[in-house]
Amino acid sequence: MKQLVIDFQKCDAGRNCNHECEMECAIKVFKVDDPAQAALQIKAYEEGGGKAILCDQCGDCMVVCPSEALKRNKLGVVMIDKQLCVGCYMCIGFCEKDAFMRNPDWIVPHKCTSCGVCVKVCPHGALSIVDVPEPAVRII
């Protein structure tokens, strides 16, 4: 399955960039001029280093979705079907990586779909799309 990964050897958690990845995702994917709505979030720690909040396509959200709105596409990426989503946000509450997100203006939640638009704009080349095996389905 296609998975977005970040290399913190290269990413400095936004200290010397303009969060181009977040901006590109917000504008290109979600058509909003607000990086807070991007499907990946880079956070810097005060003590140095940082973390990325992004979806690794683990599929836990598919297990808890009551309306079968979440399914893998042929690339193994977990996609949300807006027509089936009932806006319950169990996908958000049960995501251990906090990677499922919600824009207060929308009913349907959203997340990273490994589309790669962020990869192209990262000035440090820290982001990449890799192909990894799908994990086994968990009972949650």
Partner: peptide, 28 residues
């Protein structure tokens, strides 16, 4: 009709969303 998250047309969907997500996390 097909069910969606806002059919009750509540006055404050934001509070409902935050309270619901908080509770889902608590269950998890």
């Amino acid at each position: 009709p097909k069910v969606a998250g806002d059919l009750n047309h509540p006055v404050d969907p934001e509070t409902i969303a935050k309270t619901g997500i908080k509770y889902h996390k608590e269950i998890r």
